[in-house]
Design a protein around this nucleic acid. Sequence first.
DNA 1: ATTATTTATGCAAACGTTTGCATAAACATA
DNA 2: TATGTTTATGCAAACGTTTGCATAAATAAT
Lengths: 342, 342
Amino acid sequence: MSSPRITLKDLAKELQLSPSTISRAIAGHPAISESTKKKVRKKAEELGFAPNSIAAGFRKKRTHSIGVIVPKIDVHFHSLVISGIEDLAYREGYNITIFQSKDSIDREKEIAKILQNRLVEGIIVCLSNETKSYTHFKKLVKLGVPIIFYDRVPTDFQANKVVIDDFGSAFKATEHLIEQGCKRIGHIAGNQGTPIFKHRFEGYKAALKAHNIPYNPDLVLETQNLSYEEGAISARKLIALPQIPDGVFCSNDYTAISAVQVFQKAGFKVPEQIAVVGFSNYPISQVIQPNLTTVNDRAFQMGEAAAKLLIRQIEDEDNAIDFETITLKTDLVIRESSLRKK
Amino acid sequence: MSSPRITLKDLAKELQLSPSTISRAIAGHPAISESTKKKVRKKAEELGFAPNSIAAGFRKKRTHSIGVIVPKIDVHFHSLVISGIEDLAYREGYNITIFQSKDSIDREKEIAKILQNRLVEGIIVCLSNETKSYTHFKKLVKLGVPIIFYDRVPTDFQANKVVIDDFGSAFKATEHLIEQGCKRIGHIAGNQGTPIFKHRFEGYKAALKAHNIPYNPDLVLETQNLSYEEGAISARKLIALPQIPDGVFCSNDYTAISAVQVFQKAGFKVPEQIAVVGFSNYPISQVIQPNLTTVNDRAFQMGEAAAKLLIRQIEDEDNAIDFETITLKTDLVIRESSLRKK
DNA sequence: ATTATTTATGCAAACGTTTGCATAAACATA
DNA sequence: TATGTTTATGCAAACGTTTGCATAAATAAT
């Protein structure tokens, strides 16, 4: 039922030409006359010739393929980043091969090993949260495979990185609460072993300091993974304090939303009594009542930037670049959950 | 800085053996003695040899790669399906290359063309909503590339499909509302040009009929793409009717949620006055207040099933299977938005 | 008409594996 | 000792392209 594949040679035989001529004709080489080009294209169409890009890639040592390793595809942030990567890569003639580390260092290592085998010309990675050492990636770098890290990036290791300004974003978010008149601002924090969450915490503290608000550790609650449930637990702790906060900055939208709900159920008005700001601008933030003020972390742009940087490095002949770090702008999306209108 | 790649030949020269022996030693061929195997493996490790799987794939005519075409990666349903595909494919030694059609038939055709070139051994597709003809896929089938369609599948075209029972799911959802005491049940429907949404509508009607509830077209509102905004508009229309419904079945969760919010804002109690059921079990359905009753559409399992089916066809030597359709079970996740207790 | 230049095509090697077949060495059998 | 069998390795071709170089034919310059 499936007819055998047509190759260059078949075409050549059919047209009484050499394979090289066919190859060049199809590639549009200038040394081939228009008349033969036309003939070749016609016959190719007729026989349903599809060039074997594996063979071509093998010969030219190119795959036009880039590898992407994410912790989990179905986390909205990552799927948005992937979307950005795919979009740019597609425009540039690359395709993307995706792997999930499932936040397992072992799986990440396995994947790195698979990726050594010339399948891809470059790699984009968001580290698993178990990753502490980077030898599996260093090996790849040594083989000449460019790597771009995004979001969760290695700290003590020179590399290409695309990140957002977590510190600055948290600073802006906290400052916004201050400007809305908040005096006692709480923080629901992510795992402080993860740099990005630490930076957000630092940004929060810096904003308080800049506005002469004393830092009160009782108002800060660290969570393991910023889950919806942990958000609720933290929120309940906050309203159990002798002096409850009048504003809360949360390190992601899930905890922010569950905090809002806990506050509302306990009879507090959001934002009038407690103003809340989240982080990431998840779709849900526009659906929840009141709509959530949050930091737009530009996931799609992050993917685009990572892909652009990677492709530049792949195609950079003389390999002049050493390492590059791109920090993306974020913006605070002000919605109802924090706005105590003037 | 990047050392040149080590090849089989390099290893062979280094060890005074032939490339074939090296190849077999690494592959664990039984005809090679343990002692040489050990030597080869040691040297390979030492020189950092990474087999060129492109060359191997070229020689063996295998890529162990499967192509996936989705409308948009960042739609949660699709990212979950992809996650299921990746998970199963990874276990079976395949990697996945992802393309977004962006719901554009032209882009879908372009992608199909790219995929002809032996990059992938099989393809998993969710059709763009512009797709009406399937010639671009038929060409691939003729070349012997197995294709599995999921969710949005071709109608008038023999093919492998993985779907859920939209009709039955909608029937169950509507029946549930009836069991909760609803007498006037509305339906916010998806674009009736898309089979899955039509089936859901049919299921809704069938459930009414089965319970001797007259079908009332005034209670059914068709939307273009089941957006949050369209949900709100439809919900407002429903409560503007002379006789408002006491239950609504929505073809997705977004419209269900915005309907709930419109009803609440208008002073109706959910579920007491109007019970609401959605479709898809998006994460948001567990967050919204009241939690949303919805149909779990098993996106992850759909991905797994599609990948499993595809790999079976790829590896099926004698190509005995013609076409196969898998229909996955769904279940109704009953939560607060429809539950008028016991 | 001879030589130089341009234009269009072909030859053959190469990319790094895998694999059927041949073969040499070691061992077992008669 | 001669023959048969097993074990371990090598040879060489093949997979389908691409590409530097050579070459033949056609055209231009002398």
